[in-house]
Design a protein around this nucleic acid. Structure first.
Lengths: 167, 167
DNA sequence: CTAATGAGTTGCAAAACACAACTATAAATG
DNA sequence: CATTTATAGTTGTGTTTTGCAACTCATTAG
């Protein structure tokens, strides 16, 4: 036990400052991700989201407010029709593109099977590359190739080393 | 026919094929993703997940069953202690690695700020590459560089075009 | 044999959600 | 100008999901 004590401390700290829980709070609610996907596909108005996703109006209203509130979407009146409101992706929202595409690719691989319609590069019309985790020098990395590194102390630990204990 | 009709019909049609909603049903529930992160970090037993995530026992029980049911986790009795059960990632679960890491990186960029502890390559100890969407020939792609391509018909549409009535 | 551990289940209260109906403002129509 | 329609919501009500605490049951440790 004594040998891995510092590792345990680091893992505890890692869990506390892991950015995932916060990210999940924002986009992990039931409809938020589907609304986001709508936005990525060019949906912009309340009625479009509502009819397109089949979501209840009050829930949609709530989710849009939250997404705007955390700066994933921006909300602005439509200059061409002042009844309308335009919801569009902010930079923070656009930055979720790799997440959305990675999840889509996973769904294709493990749930659906390739769909006919694929994302492609406008420039040459070729389908986009598969999203994967890579090392600094470009090798593809798997779960077993990974470790956690504390950059201040230089402490390194293999995955799974210390979660057998308590925490 | 006014404004939204063609948009919504086309969106709905594409939505039926889109792998995202199904993927989200599996891992988009509030705790599912955090359980998954626990599994990626080496948590394996019920009590570890419970104490580590602070999740209610009945919810945890339900989520683990669902994750096992859709083959993201596998559940097996611990041979060394027959009270214990080992939950571990199946290949389908491991394949979510890019999604998890991409979301983590997004959280670092837009919510937290870089944390001290980073994922690194075991081989050389260097932090992993940033996950991003790339073209066939390796250029980084942004939302505005993308289009949808129907591989059977060869039909191509710019993002946003589609749902404004063309498809 | 007794106590403690591990993996759940059960019952109840609180929160989130779904559905329908309603409001307020702006635009289109006659 | 008066009336109708479109858009983006809000409100009220019932249902479903979640969270919390206490409990069971089998296995293991002392």
């Amino acid at each position: 036990m004594s040998g891995i004590e510092p590792d345990i401390e680091n893992f505890k700290k890692a869990a506390l400052q892991c950015p995932l829980p916060h990210a999940i709070e924002l986009i992990g609610e039931k409809w938020a991700f589907l609304i986001l996907r709508g936005a990525f596909n060019g949906l912009r108005h309340f009625e479009q989201f509502q009819a397109g996703l089949g979501i209840a109006r009050n829930i949609l209203s709530d989710r849009l407010q939250k997404l705007v509130g955390c700066d994933i979407l921006k909300r602005e009146p439509d200059p061409s029709d002042r009844r309308k409101v335009i919801y569009s992706l902010s930079p923070k929202g656009e930055a979720l593109l790799p997440v959305v595409v990675a999840l889509r690719q996973w769904g294709e691989d493990w749930c659906h099977g390739q769909s006919d319609i694929v994302l492609a590069d406008q420039r040459d019309g070729k389908p986009v590359r598969r999203i994967r985790l890579m090392s600094e020098d470009g090798r593809e990395l798997d779960l077993k190739d990974l470790m956690w590194l504390d950059r201040r102390t230089g402490t390194a630990l293999r995955r799974g080393d210390s979660w057998d204990g308590k925490l």
